[in-house]
Design a protein around this nucleic acid. Sequence first.
DNA 1: AACCACCATAAACAATCGTTTGAAACTTAC
DNA 2: GTAAGTTTCAAACGATTGTTTATGGTGGTT
Lengths: 213, 213
Amino acid sequence: MAQKETVERILDAAEALFAERGFAETSLRTITSTAGVNLAAVNYHFGSKKALIQAVFERFLEPLVAEIDQRLSVLEQNPEKINVESLLRVLSSAIYEVHGRNTNRATAFMRLLGLAYTQSQAHVRNFIASRYGDAFQRYARLLKPALPGATDQELFWHTHFALGTAIFTMSNFDALRAMAMNDTGHRGSVDFIVSNLTSFMAAGLRNASHDDA
Amino acid sequence: MAQKETVERILDAAEALFAERGFAETSLRTITSTAGVNLAAVNYHFGSKKALIQAVFERFLEPLVAEIDQRLSVLEQNPEKINVESLLRVLSSAIYEVHGRNTNRATAFMRLLGLAYTQSQAHVRNFIASRYGDAFQRYARLLKPALPGATDQELFWHTHFALGTAIFTMSNFDALRAMAMNDTGHRGSVDFIVSNLTSFMAAGLRNASHDDA
DNA sequence: AACCACCATAAACAATCGTTTGAAACTTAC
DNA sequence: GTAAGTTTCAAACGATTGTTTATGGTGGTT
């Protein structure tokens, strides 16, 4: 009868609602009712709300990290092409590949990433760190020779500056576009914004180490 | 008996707890108990939890915006000194002036700013926008001639990229420093991080418009 | 048919939430 | 010292939270 498995219906609803309102602000009852399933289904299939949150992240990160890993392997076969821009493009194109033109899904994912940082939810951060820490370290190893002047400390901080720029922008994507429409008269196309975001990050990464105050 | 007014005790506790856990995750009972006041005091003095949240922001933003305004006025008297770096320094030094060496307070403020964006809490965003929108527009007017090549659209987005970088970094300040200690062996001094953050933002703002992919 | 593992359902559970109440305690002024 | 006004207090309110339970139904195996 159920066209989609109950588990997936729950994950779909939870993903959208978490991204929209946050974890604590989303009750299991609103999740199950928008998913069209029984309230008890969450605890039956996932065990707890915390486990559901982690499952949402897992479904999201698993294919994305795999896609990034594959693209990094391709890039490593042409070492002369490794630079800041190509490394950043691995990320943006991986997201684009996994979620296609579905920007709703992509911005939902970014909002969730931002929530994982901003909301205390330590179990989420620990889950992500233990699960996908290796992928992040591999990326950092490739980025290092692309920024020859930087120390390890600078590399760490500039990477997280760039990460923060992307997460903040994407997680507030709709709100920012609405504000842009108000202030400038243009919403800005997705390509325009992503392209500007990428060059902002690249410029920051490249030049921050050389601009001593 | 009470050394500090009940109102201020509540605001102190709420500020710290909100920054640490978020709005929905912080109950009035934990606020009042850590403040050492009665539960009913919040509703008596503020009216509701929403009003308390806004009061926390008001106490924080009022002196900061005043300080920024004054520094902008000083800067405007020497128009030749207006550039990206000096404008960014207005912000960082204003925060530094208002909260002194109390980095706890400063990072709490940034976390709150991030929460205002990330958590849906529309009433918070509306409150801030209606209250301090003018200050932001004044800043944008000064920033525009400092980035001569940029269009209005680019100016808007690059400004919010930079804003996102700062908010994300500062709002996760402690967590990031802990990670830095893990990865690099150094926590990084506040001055080091702020200086790197500033040059990252300046480089992004300045060069993003010229790096077309 | 009988059994079985699996899943959906309605109902209830205890805990916690923001808010309200009415009386006690305090401060201030005359 | 008494009255009025302000603040604090313990207790309770109804609503909502995550979770559990007990009951039924379903499809497949023997």
